[in-house]
């Protein structure tokens, strides 16, 4: 049996007579979406937590949605990405006074969606750089304490807590990321490697994976054509969509001019015996592109280039 299975991180949207819409807008669009990702070989689906409410409205329950997925060839929802907007007044990992709220809101969420049977809860381990700067060791330690608590709690639900470092996240440099994993408990806090985010932040994602492979629970395989050379990570009020440097940071694997060395990463994964789900992502593909095409091109690359190295 192959050690790797492919999951799709959902940012999908399509053009419609009423403009761009997501698949959460109608059962028919959901049907189209699931069939399309299944057709190119995905077996799993990653999604945002804030989409779950809409699914229960559309299907009646999360169990019925998962049945809908299975009927179309998607075996499970693999990872849930917590799309929380941190605020130091209420919930922000570097603010210790807010940790109880982060832990308890996460507990409520996992209890509410226990039927999801996800493997990992993916979180951004700190707020935006611009909101947390200056980043100090104490703030990183505070965040580590936060996620140790969340991870211990999520383990009760059979869910791993794993951290995803956006290039504009407060814990974004190689040194700070290493400190964070030194100060978190390997039993409770995993590392989730987003290839493009690290690349944009000026970090070699393969080298980072080599260092943290024993903490790595999964990947977002996506590409970028640009390193942040303008301090975009500190762009206020937003770095992802509003930075002057570019209006589109992310591309599908195999894109022309892509900076991520996926073949080298696959060789490293093979060497370290990584097994499990690999998630493909290409958020904001609609900026000058198209989700359907990006999805198919990603899987062409996975099947015809990466699977030759490790499958």
């Amino acid at each position: 049996m192959s050690p790797l299975r492919w999951s799709y991180m959902d940012h999908w949207r399509v053009d419609s007579p009423r403009g761009p819409v997501t698949q959460y807008s109608s059962p028919r669009r959901m049907d189209d979406f699931v069939k399309q990702i299944s057709a190119v070989g995905f077996e799993g689906l990653d999604m945002f937590d804030f989409q779950i409410y809409g699914l229960t409205q559309m299907f009646g329950s999360i169990e019925k949605y998962q049945e809908f997925l299975r009927e179309r060839g998607i075996t499970k929802i693999v990872n849930l990405f917590r799309g929380i907007m941190y605020d130091p007044r209420r919930a922000d990992p570097h603010v210790r006074e807010t940790h109880d709220e982060i832990v308890e809101s996460t507990r409520r969420m996992l209890r509410m969606w226990e039927g999801l049977q996800i493997e990992s809860l993916i979180v951004m381990p700190a707020g935006l750089y611009i909101d947390a700067a200056p980043v100090t060791d104490d703030k990183i330690k505070a965040a580590a304490e936060c996620w140790n608590r969340v991870g211990e709690m999520s383990a009760e639900f059979g869910v791993r807590t794993t951290c995803h470092h956006e290039f504009f996240c407060a814990i974004r440099t190689e040194d700070d990321i290493r400190k964070f994993y030194e100060w978190t408990d390997p039993r409770y806090v995993g590392f989730f490697c987003d290839t493009a985010q690290h690349c944009i932040a000026g970090i070699d994602p393969v080298a980072l994976y080599e260092d943290l492979h024993d903490r790595c629970t999964g990947f977002h395989f996506k590409d970028t054509r640009q390193v942040d050379t303008t301090g975009a990570y500190a762009n206020a009020p937003d770095a992802e969509l509003m930075a002057p440097q570019t209006d589109r940071w992310f591309y599908e694997m195999g894109t022309d001019g892509g900076l991520v060395d996926f073949p080298r990463l696959m060789r490293a994964m093979r060497r370290h015996g990584f097994s499990g789900w690999v998630t493909v992502e290409h958020d904001k593909a609609n900026i000058g592109g198209d989700y359907a095409e990006s999805t198919a091109l990603s899987m062409w690359y996975a099947k015809h280039v990466l699977s030759e190295i490790y499958a």
Binding site: D15, D32, K35, I37, R72, A292, E293, T295, A296
Partner: peptide, 17 residues
Amino acid sequence: TPNPSSSVMLNAWYAQH
């Protein structure tokens, strides 16, 4: 089709399933 890639994927799913 308004979206060629989408159509290929939908036809592939129908062919397979």
